[in-house]
């Protein structure tokens, strides 16, 4: 399963970005292989309009199963993620590692 965490940088120690559509990066963790990679979302992060749906489209293209973020996506992005069957967990903070551990421990809220 592939988990994407909205972040301000890349890697385990990157700070979580509480925003979904305007996050610069998504750190991607494959929890079966333990592999870590990232999605570059900078083009969408700086969009004038519709950052949310475009980011959600990019998430879907990368075959992500679960998104972890802070505040949660807005209505348009949530519609795309729901249509694609992608789970959304909100309330993440601190580093990517912290957010991943919180998710594993069931501390994050499913939206």
């Amino acid at each position: 399963m592939k988990i994407a965490i909205s972040a301000q940088e890349t890697g385990w120690n990157a700070p979580v970005d509480p925003r979904f559509g305007r996050a610069q990066y998504f750190v991607v963790i494959d929890d079966t292989t333990g592999e870590i990679s990232y999605i570059d979302n900078r083009a969408n992060a700086n969009a004038g309009h519709g950052a949310g749906p475009n980011t959600a489209s990019l998430i879907a293209d990368n075959d992500i199963n679960v998104v972890i973020t802070g505040n949660g996506p807005g209505g348009n992005a949530a519609r795309v993620l729901a249509t694609m069957g992608i789970g959304v967990f909100v309330g993440a903070s601190g580093t990517v590692r912290q957010a991943y551990e919180d998710y594993k421990a069931g501390k994050l809220m499913r939206q």
Binding site: G48, H49, G50, A51
Partner: peptide
């Protein structure tokens, strides 16, 4: 689309 009003999701 300049306004990201249409997207392809899969």
């Amino acid at each position: 689309c300049n306004f990201n009003a249409i997207i392809q999701a899969k």
